[in-house]
Design a protein around this nucleic acid. Structure first.
Lengths: 336, 336
DNA sequence: CTGAAAGCGCTTACAG
DNA sequence: CTGAAAGCGCTTACAG
């Protein structure tokens, strides 16, 4: 049926091995032969069978993307597509494909990953999230499989790329303080995700540095990352009149908080959050300042790190790459 | 190195063929043998090599996901992750993997698809967008490769799943009219995407049915799908005072329009848009009505249709499945 | 610079 | 119910 390497070889009057070498652009093949073989490949519309190639070469040229448990919050967060875009650009430029893995629960996810990994379907994995005590990450680490995490899991014996979340938590808070806030409040989220905690550390550090009181409760953690939670929480906080500014760790939650502020009698209370990309000028809330996480860069760097790891796979062992992607404050339009 | 089917066969005292049949849960193998072989597989932690399996069986058990040109607008739109989630759930339940394909330009994308298709890396494709004169879609259709489009391309000789965009454009507009709008305006987008045009048809039909004048310009098409464009456009329209309601075809553009309305002296002008999922109660703009597109269902159904097509691959030819996913109005909270 | 041969790890008629 | 054999379409030492 489909045209194979043998068909090309026959018509080009060379052996299949030679055709294979032409495909790989092996320098030991003469230019004349290459030209001839390539012409035949074009004529026959030949494409190598990727399974056969993987099987023989033991390289799948594919990266597995590990997503968290399928939940609305993650999929709806702009962080996901933004990072995805960076990953895609970097990997496709090297001819690598992207295989997605997720599932409804931890069990499904783990077994899917095992299948991919042991089944030699992927050469390495990129985790699009980080959380403490992640069994999936523990599994792949334990078998020394090439992996890069976007984020900072509790176990630092892993390759990772992340923002400096403590630093940017601090910077965000400072921006609020400079606007005149005396009792800013931090809205986090699922504390299993280290970035939530780390941004909070930065928040507290900023308060301390500015000699602001931190004796009252000034940090809150909604259970889910959905806007509703942020809304409900912010409503309560505003009702007590205990906040004059919000640092919100998650963009989805920020939507709810923003809404609560707008409905309150203190609609000018500032809010600062963290966004995966530089917001375009009029994007709904351009008036707000925010921290730009450079999500696309995070994705690209994850791929580059993985390629580095793949390249030096022999000297594996106790060497881990931790890369910090810079993040900067994007000032709001109406600087008060 | 890794454990293969032969290792399992040896230890279980059967032939590799038998092991293969156990993996496939072939009914012709006795329960006793199955049990024994499975025990050995567990003991050895055996996982079949997926490339070998694909090569031998000529089935990759993988679906290719065709994304549009990598652009901010698509990736940032919640439609993408929502549909993705539906696709993932349906495909992983059948043991199918998901391979992603996109690129910076049409050329890259086409060659990537060709590689995947001719390289037998995927059994079928799902397009996550639809546009007129899509060379990628034309290519796969021309070689009769199994494909399902989410959306309605110009060529209807293709399997597709979509909302009834004309109908929901009409329903959205009617909702506005019922709120008292006399001169609603339609904000579309890239007219290469049929849903933009179809929702506009519905918009016009609603005006006609309500005997509202449509002699002035009442539809606009920003060049990009980004919020900025919606903002700028809405500002102009509002300045002229020619609109008392907005039907916005795209959720990202709606953000800009919403912002422009909020800044204007007519902050109570209603806006209705189309969202991939039912918004949670307090999600920023819960006060607005919207149409629920059921993005997750769109994704799931695309997978099911693809499986149907794959199952009956022999009687291909002139049979195409067009499935319409229902969409309903979600009323806003503050019904005026 | 090129070829013959073995092998990658499965599946699948075919035969019994 | 099970096995022997051929084959899927490549790659890669090895040899020349």
């Amino acid at each position: 049926m489909a045209v194979t390497i043998k068909d090309v070889a026959r018509l080009a009057n060379v052996s299949p091995s030679t055709v294979s070498r032409v495909i790989a652009d092996n320098p030991s093949i003469s230019t004349a032969t290459k030209r001839r073989v390539r012409r035949i490949m074009d004529e026959l519309n030949y494409y190598p069978n990727l399974s056969a190639r993987s099987l023989a070469s033991k390289k799948s040229q594919t990266i597995g993307l590990v997503l968290p448990q399928a939940s609305d919050a993650f999929y709806q967060n702009p962080f996901f597509p933004t990072v995805m875009r960076g990953i895609n650009e970097a990997s496709s430029s090297k001819g690598y494909g992207l295989l997605i893995s997720t599932g409804q629960n931890e069990e499904d996810r783990l077994s899917h990953i095992q299948r991919m990994v042991y089944g030699k379907q992927v050469e390495g994995l990129i985790f699009l999230y980080a959380m403490v005590n992640d069994p999936i990450l523990e599994f792949v680490s334990s078998i020394n499989f090439p992996v890069v995490v976007i984020g900072s899991p509790d176990n630092s014996q892993v390759n990772l790329v992340d923002n400096d979340n403590e630093l940017i938590g601090k910077q965000a808070t400072k921006a609020l303080i400079e606007k005149g806030c005396r009792k800013p409040v931090y809205i986090g989220g699922d504390e299993k995700q280290p970035f939530i905690h780390n941004r909070e550390l930065g928040f507290k550090a900023a308060l301390k540095e500015a000699h602001l009181p931190s004796d009252h409760q000034n940090s809150f953690h909604p259970k889910s990352f959905m806007p509703d939670e942020g809304y409900a929480l912010a409503k309560q906080i505003l009702a007590k009149g205990e906040a004059d500014g919000f640092v919100v760790a998650d963009q989805l939650v920020a939507r709810g908080v923003r809404h609560a502020i707008a409905q309150s009698q203190q609609a000018d209370i500032p809010l600062i959050t963290f966004k995966p990309y530089a917001p375009s000028l009029y994007t709904g809330h351009a008036t707000e300042a925010c921290m730009n996480l450079h999500g696309q860069t995070l994705g690209e760097q994850a791929v580059y790190i993985l390629f580095d790891v793949l390249r030096d796979e022999e000297n594996k062992g106790q060497r881990y790459i931790h890369e910090i992607v810079k993040s900067e404050l994007i000032p709001g339009l109406n600087q008060q």
